[in-house]
Simulated assay, not measured.
Amino acid sequence: MRPDYGADGLYGLIAGVRRWLAGCEDGLPWRLSNDAVKRPGEVLVFWLVDGLGDAFLQRYGVGSVLLHHRRRRLTSVFPSTTASAITTVMTGLAPYTHGLTGWFINEPRFGGVLAPLPLTRRGKGAVRGASLLSRLFPFPSLYQQARKPCVVIAPRHIAGSAFSLRHCRGARVEAYRGVNELVARVVETVRALRARGGGYVYAYYERFDALSHRYGCRSAPVLEEFARIDRAFGSLLERLAGSGAEVLVSADHGFIDNPRERRIRLDTRREVAAMLASALFGERRAAFCKVRSGAEHEFEAWARETLPGKALLRRSADLVAEGLFGPGIRHKRLSERVGTHTLLMERGWTIIDRVPAERPPELIGVHGGLSAEEMWVPLIGARCD
């Protein structure tokens, strides 16, 4: 399925947040028809639970507080992955504009394929360079453009990372450890912002995603973690009762599982790897390929012959033209970031390669593709009157 960059997508939700931060109160995508237009000292809280797909919520959330407050569903961006979607949440820009088109991006200026969130190169350690952050992330954050105070609440181990600090410019950053401390930080921040006349709180929680990757998206550890998150959400609503805060919960993507027999290793196919001018980038569910000049037809023939039922090969330029990466001003390095061809993996399938000194993690739960489970995320909302 295709991403929606309008009212029914995560991008559209953040466009509404941008308008709200600019002082607009009309046409906000989380507002119910009977909501009052303006409330003095209003605080908007957006809690993003990394990896909480709408299909999971509806299948396993029966009786939960989160499902009770579910309003509707939204699509993620493409690729349906953290690097692309979280950057949209923190900038208001689509991948077409911010250029982070997956966990790995192709960046010849900094030595090849790198991961922009931890700022590491595939198999080569940390990325360094003059004016690194401003060159990799030349766009302003959502918070720099706001007319209301903003606070970002992030896990302690990433709150001070270069990526976080770059994308949190204009906001105050609060660190936490564990979901109960996240709730406490949100409650404290809401009270402080109300005293200042209102503002915006963005809270990010990543443990659900980490457990889904490691154990699978329907595993016992994931179900236990969902129960903890649901209890925390219920506690948050109780502690904010009477504050007038609007609390939204959504996600950056959902999950599917990737059985071992549906994992393709490109590095075992030397004749195919020789057709590529770089390592794969993007996602293992949506892999971008930089095919060597002159090898395009041979690579396409290989895909037609060997990948039916496993992957669909598309020219990347066609996906850009079709709007899969969203609207906006085109990132000047978008062509580099999406390569010449894209392997859109079929349900349950992934593809990876390997570079020297790299050990790709074994992931059971995966995302990044265009299945409904990966693309649909919930929009949960509650007003704490």
Results as ranks from 00 to 15, higher is better:
A130L: 09
A154F: 14
P95V: 00
T340R: 00
A357Q: 08
A210K: 13
S64Y: 14
V249F: 00
N34P: 02
A195G: 09
M375I: 04
A85L: 15
D4V: 07
Y96A: 01
A83E: 06
R284N: 08
V62F: 13
V65Y: 14
G111W: 09
G170P: 11
T350I: 03
G328L: 12
F110Y: 14
A22G: 15
I380Y: 13
V173N: 09
L276N: 05
A55I: 02
S33T: 06
A227S: 05
T82K: 04
R39G: 05
E188K: 03
R166M: 15
G326H: 03
I105T: 02
R72L: 02
E25L: 07
F226Y: 04
T340V: 11
L74M: 09
F78N: 00
R18K: 08
A279K: 01
H69Q: 05
N180R: 09
F233N: 01
S243Q: 05
G234F: 08
E181K: 02
R314G: 05
W302L: 10
L93E: 00
L44E: 01
G123W: 08
E373T: 03
C384Q: 06
R239I: 09
M275F: 15
R70F: 08
G6Y: 06
T88M: 06
R122Q: 08
R330M: 08
G53L: 04
L132E: 15
A245R: 06
Y96D: 00
Y176R: 05
A83Y: 04
R354Y: 13
G197N: 14
E358I: 03
G309P: 06
L344C: 05
R172S: 14
L343I: 09
A274I: 01
A130W: 06
M90L: 12
L307S: 08
E261C: 10
R73I: 04
G309C: 02
W103G: 03
N106T: 02
Q144K: 12
I380W: 15
E224F: 10
H253R: 05
I264H: 13
I86M: 14
P138V: 12
A203N: 02
S141L: 10
R228F: 10
V62P: 10
P29S: 03
